[in-house]
Design a protein around this nucleic acid. Structure first.
Lengths: 237, 237
DNA sequence: AAGTGGTCTAGACCACTTC
DNA sequence: AAGTGGTCTAGACCACTTC
């Protein structure tokens, strides 16, 4: 990958995250960065716009690019990230248990969610996520068999996303997400350590490839006390 | 505002939302659009990249810009949007009641959230949102007095964001958001029609101006059955 | 081979901030 | 007046898709 603006972006992210450039200070100007990285101004601007979009800097006209404080929000549940990637950043011991990995004829509900025809089969993966010995999250994943021909328990207990991207070279591109709060089902009570909680948080995820085909539907069901969602948003004027 | 790429962006959004260009069809190529709008390709690309970022299109190399289906997700709770703007798009009757609009010495908790000194005062606004006659949302807003010198009950029952942006010309720029689920407080029980629900969804919002100053802290407390959060996310490779 | 989008360049003019 | 970021241009070369 010879992608200049991404290299510059990553370089500056590293500088911010390592504390090499400090919060509330200004980055070098676009003109200085242009000279420093031996490139054109538009390429620098591409890197800086990415930094702004991800909440690292705030660009202020006439002044420069201000590094903004992001310390207490560095827990990126927002966006598209797999549980494995997330767990790597978390405190406490974390374990994934795959209860069921099987190729099934989809229920009408799943068939509708994944927009399948009557002949399509899906991989169903039922997993729980244990944090510090408690079953906190129930993940139900459904994958279009035409796109994911094979899945195993081993893969499901490691990282399915890693397998899809690195082994199958499936380019995961975007997702639509919906968060609601509902009463626990019998299944939730069976698989989770609910300890008297009266609600579960349900995150429905519809995941698409780069060619815009829908290939995965996921329900991630969380015990409410352990659920936290953070987001960084820019206002559209 | 003579902003070519935003005009092109809005023009294409209108075409998509009115159904003039249909889902699963390709937009004209960048080269065709360049001629059509009499501009340069980079300007067209700026407009198309905005469309991609907001989930209207998926760009596919070698093929074109595919209009993607967004119908069932056109309820934009995600991002930065005020309740008034949201209510305008919602079904059912909606009413805002301001219970308290006053200039106070902040509690230690609020002082910490807004990073205030001991001498700063804040405007406190306590509002409930009624949907179809039920009190569903309790909003607690705190504004830095130095930035918002004056607030009234009338403004609070209309749209504070509209007042801040159009009257005070405050450029609202970005926000950090946190969603959790907690047990109702006595205050929640007093102000909301909880009807036996055991949890409330709490959305904490830290709102910043264009010069990156923090000026507002909000807690929006929702009855769980009426809460829904939708999001469109692109994966970072 | 022709058409598509992705990256990069060197330059221009402008609005805003600082001094 | 000098420095900052925001927008726009016209052109180049490349990777991928289609035929």
């Amino acid at each position: 990958m010879t992608n200049k603006y991404l290299k510059i972006f990553n370089d500056i992210v590293d500088q911010i995250e390592s504390g090499e450039v400090s919060t509330n200070s200004l980055l070098p100007s676009e003109n200085e960065l242009r000279i420093q990285y031996d490139t054109s101004r538009e390429t620098i601007r591409k890197a800086l716009n990415l930094l702004a979009q991800k909440g690292y800097i705030q660009k202020i006209r006439g002044k420069g690019s201000l590094v903004i404080e992001n310390g207490k929000f560095n827990f990126p549940v927002s966006g598209l990230i797999s549980f494995k990637e997330l767990a790597d950043k978390m405190e406490g011991s974390v374990r994934t248990i795959a209860h069921d990995v099987s190729l099934i004829k989809p229920t009408p509900y799943i068939q509708k969610q994944l927009q399948l025809t009557n002949k399509d089969l899906v991989w169903q993966v039922i997993r729980t996520r244990e944090i510090n010995g408690k079953k906190i999250i129930l993940d139900k994943d459904y994958f279009h068999q035409k796109i994911v021909p094979e899945l195993t328990k081993e893969i499901s207990e490691d990282s399915i996303y890693h397998y899809l991207e690195k082994e199958l070279n499936l380019p995961i591109s975007f997702a639509k997400k919906e968060v609601t709060v509902v009463e626990p089902t019998a299944e939730d009570r069976q698989f989770l350590d609910l300890e008297g909680f009266y609600n579960v948080v349900v995150i429905r995820n519809y995941v698409y490839l780069e060619d815009a085909t829908l290939f995965q539907y996921t329900e991630s069901r969380h015990r409410p006390d352990k659920f936290k969602f953070v987001d960084f948003a820019r206002r559209n004027h």
